[in-house]
Nucleic acid binder design. Structure first.
Lengths: 101, 101
DNA sequence: GGCGTTGTTCGAGAGTTGTCGAACAAGGGT
DNA sequence: ACCCTTGTTCGACAACTCTCGAACAACGCC
């Protein structure tokens, strides 16, 4: 099946914001910023793999990530360039949050 | 009752993002940016006044707006200075969205 | 081929959210 | 005092979301 990775300009801003408005997904995004491309399995934040897969789908369909197959794994990376071009400052603002709060 | 307007630093970033991740609330924020302080009743975006009151409550409890009584009306204003200080670029990025998409 | 690893998909359940009408509260004007 | 305007609050209902285990698919390896 097609990964269904929409052009970011086709995604309503509310969808982008909603995708970022979740703790697990925010941890995924943070990990992607720090480590770059990573396999789905590396995002073990206390949720099952079904839930993890769901969150990655939400991020992907919001236009925030790209996924490519690599053997039995799937590598995910942040579409940071496009994100920064369309919403300059958004990602930095979101990521500026300290661990708590 | 107390307006319950938390300090923005006490609000999780996911709550702030969730507050902005709604079309009606985004229209309210846009109107506040353009017109400054405004009465609740001025935000007629095709929803009932009960719904409007609900959305204003979400924005207020996310630390995004302040409300003060003025006669029978209540005037709402955006806490833009605090928002820009804590999340620089966030509001501009969100508001940069054109009408569609 | 068979097995293990890695992810996705499919219900299903609990919880949250957006919406409304109706009832209520507070103020101002006449 | 009465009424009208302005908002809030209270159920209620539909829709969506997060979560999980179980079943399935795809790939590499022995």
């Amino acid at each position: 099946m097609e990964p269904h990775e929409p052009d970011l300009t086709d995604v309503p801003v509310t969808t982008v914001l909603a995708a970022l408005a979740d703790d697990v997904r925010l941890q995924i995004v943070r990990a992607l910023v720090e480590n770059g491309e990573a396999a789905c399995g590396s995002f073990d934040f206390g949720v099952s793999k079904a839930t993890r897969s769901h969150h990655l789908k939400v991020l992907r369909e919001a236009g925030l990530t790209r996924t490519r197959a690599a053997g039995t794994s799937r590598l995910v990376r942040l579409r940071r360039d496009e994100l920064d071009r369309l919403y300059p400052g958004l990602l930095d603002a979101v990521l500026s949050t300290r661990t708590s709060a």
